[in-house]
Design a protein around this nucleic acid. Structure first.
Length: 609
DNA sequence: CCCATACCCT
């Protein structure tokens, strides 16, 4: 394996600054030495270099075409290399042959061109070339890295090229290629920069691949890649998004150790994480901490808190935060109003939300499509489908465009009302409007069919969706698994579970809970318990719903001792029984004289909704 | 360059 390490990175380059990946900021000068010319023209054809250069420079493509026809595009390219033509001209010719002949040159030639451009400090051209390359990566990373290392180990050209290559992959959504490039850069000793690594981390967070984020981050530190505040903030964000607050705290310590202080952005990131995790108490504590440290909360901080309190169904607190931010001299923006409007709508206070919409207009803030979507959702929740539908037309009248969420909201509402025909009419409308259905659109329709008990049609839709290039997601599977289990076809649901593992989806509580419930309904408590074992094996701890399903299952089977044992188990694990737990136990146990067995627990636990 | 809002599964 060590044979891959052909290039030892020169020490003097360790401090070399990387040219910016932003084409507008290309100002860093880096010294390069010339790569050795080791190529020879592969055939004996002779070229008149000055003439050819002229033809390229003047873009006389038709004449050039006749010359190329006598040989082949790659030979002429090789000749240009050997005659040390201008890098720009070679690039020009290279692109032309790609366009004209669809010519794919050797990976060595490609890399040699990159090297020439790097020596000429023509970073914009390298970026552009790699960007178009990333759209259709016809060379593997392994051949590129190999060719680059063979070409020359002087200067930092390879590091810069590879940095830009990784950046190009990220920009084009080719995350696996980017990650492979990241790994190989380590193997070859090419030094990447935060300019490619930070965007890579951002994309990984967006894709929810937080485990990968963690390992890339650790590796960046290990390789001494020039990390900056953004690096830390992005990693903290990723960890908070999946509730790994302990680890996020560790990264905060890392950033301090590297001489960076947590900023308002860092605090906002963590506060938002706590808000989304339903831990408003923690969010509040952090707010106090940042104020104590004289880090001033900004409008984003307040927006985060408003949204958090609304999710916590505490609109009163949200409104207080809204007042407070104005007292602090911060102007609520569209997001502020939208968050509050959405909070009011989701908590059944539609009238107040509509009033706030007027108020924001009065403040000179234009409602945007998010505002309307929140209001449409509010109407839908109140079963006011007519008004919701009318608001869709309003969006257009306001010069705004409804988006996929607008349609999804309405489609789901029609589905919930049992009006699948109208739901499909809206789908046609969205297609006509040029709004592309996404997985959620299909999920709304699929769950609509499932409500009617029409799992066949639901599965047909799922197939159609895959035919349209959309992959079923966790929600899709959960809908289908649940529907099949409720239909008494748990075996089929289990097949879907297997499929989830095959496609790399991590089943959620909902998935397992539905299956456990399904097996109990079929009277197969052994299989139900096996599912529970499986879920724990896969790292999913039983939650309250899991226990409720298990307890209900055993109650229905008359195995009350077993149900009682599970109740105790859930209490031991610190899970607080909810209303459903209580209902199950009251119905099934109390009347059968089992009160003494559970009395001590049942009446001492707080019953949460 | 990094942090905030709207839809689908109980």
């Amino acid at each position: 394996m060590n044979c891959l390490r052909l290039t030892q990175f020169p020490k003097r380059c360790l401090s070399t600054r990387f040219p910016s990946l932003d084409p507008k900021l290309n100002n860093t000068k880096t010294p390069f030495s010339s790569p050795n010319s080791t190529y020879t023209t592969p055939n004996s054809h002779t070229f008149d270099t000055p003439t050819i250069s002229q033809l390229i420079a003047k873009q006389h493509w038709s004449k050039l075409k006749t010359i190329v026809k006598e040989t082949n595009p790659s030979s002429l390219l090789q000749h240009l290399f050997n005659s040390e033509a201008q890098p720009d001209l070679i690039l020009c010719y290279f692109k032309w042959t790609q366009k004209e002949f669809g010519a794919i040159h050797n990976v060595e030639q490609f890399c040699r061109l990159l090297h020439l451009l790097a020596n000429a400090k023509n970073y914009n051209k390298i970026r552009a070339l790699l960007d178009s390359f990333a759209k259709n990566a016809h060379y593997s990373n392994s051949t590129i890295f190999h060719s680059l290392s063979v070409l020359g180990s002087w200067g930092c050209a390879n590091s810069i090229i590879v940095d830009m290559l990784v950046w190009a992959y990220v920009k084009n959504g080719e995350m696996d290629l980017a990650l492979e490039g990241f790994d190989r850069a380590g193997d070859y000793g090419f030094r990447l920069s935060a300019l490619s690594c930070n965007p890579m981390l951002v994309s990984l967070v967006k894709e929810g691949r937080i485990g990968v984020v963690e390992s890339v981050y650790k590796e960046m530190i290990r390789r001494r890649i020039g990390v900056n505040v953004v690096t830390f903030d992005v990693v903290i964000n990723g960890l908070c998004k999946v509730g790994k607050f302990q680890k996020a705290g560790d990264v905060v310590e890392d950033m301090k150790a590297w001489g960076f202080s947590p900023s308002v952005i860092t605090y906002n990131t963590i506060i938002d994480g706590y808000c989304k995790a339903g831990k408003m108490f923690k969010a509040d504590a952090l707010l106090k901490e940042m104020v104590a440290k004289r880090i001033h909360p900004n409008e984003i901080t307040f927006n985060i808190l408003i949204d958090g309190f609304c999710r916590d169904e505490n609109v009163t607190a949200a409104k207080k935060v809204f007042e407070e931010m104005q007292r602090q001299g911060l102007q609520p923006n569209v997001v502020t109003y939208n968050s509050l409007i959405n909070g009011l709508c989701s908590n059944g206070k539609l009238d107040e939300a509509l009033g706030l919409q007027d108020k924001m207009s009065g403040m000179g803030l234009k409602p945007n499509v998010v505002t309307y979507n929140a209001l449409i959702n509010g109407f839908c929740k109140k079963k006011m489908l007519k008004e919701a539908r009318e608001m869709l037309d309003d969006i257009g009248k306001r010069g705004l465009a409804p988006n996929v969420i607008t349609f999804n909201t309405l489609i789901d509402a029609y589905g919930k009302a049992g009006r699948m025909d109208d739901a499909f009419l809206l789908r046609s409308m969205m297609l006509d409007t040029g709004v592309c259905p996404n997985v959620s659109t299909y999920n709304c329709l699929i769950v609509g069919f499932c409500r009617e008990g029409n799992v066949k049609e639901a599965r047909k839709l799922a197939k159609e969706m895959e035919g349209n290039g959309l992959k079923a997601d966790l929600v899709t599977y959960n809908i289908l698994v649940d529907a099949l289990c409720k239909k008494g076809e748990t075996r089929k649901a289990v097949r879907l579970l297997d499929e989830m593992f095959e496609v790399g989806l991590n089943p959620s509580h909902l998935t397992y809970n539905a299956l456990i419930d399904g097996y109990f309904r079929e009277g197969n408590s052994t299989a139900a318990l096996n599912v529970r074992t499986l879920m724990e094996k896969k790292g999913r701890r039983a939650n309250i719903v899991t226990y409720n399903v298990l307890i209900k299952g055993f109650c229905n089977k008359g195995k009350l001792e077993e149900a009682n044992r599970l109740l105790n188990e859930m209490l031991e694990k610190g899970l607080i029984p909810n209303r459903t737990t209580y209902d199950i136990l009251r119905d099934e146990m109390m009347e059968k004289g089992f009160i003494p067995d559970i009395d001590g627990h049942l009446y001492n636990v707080s019953i949460s909704s």
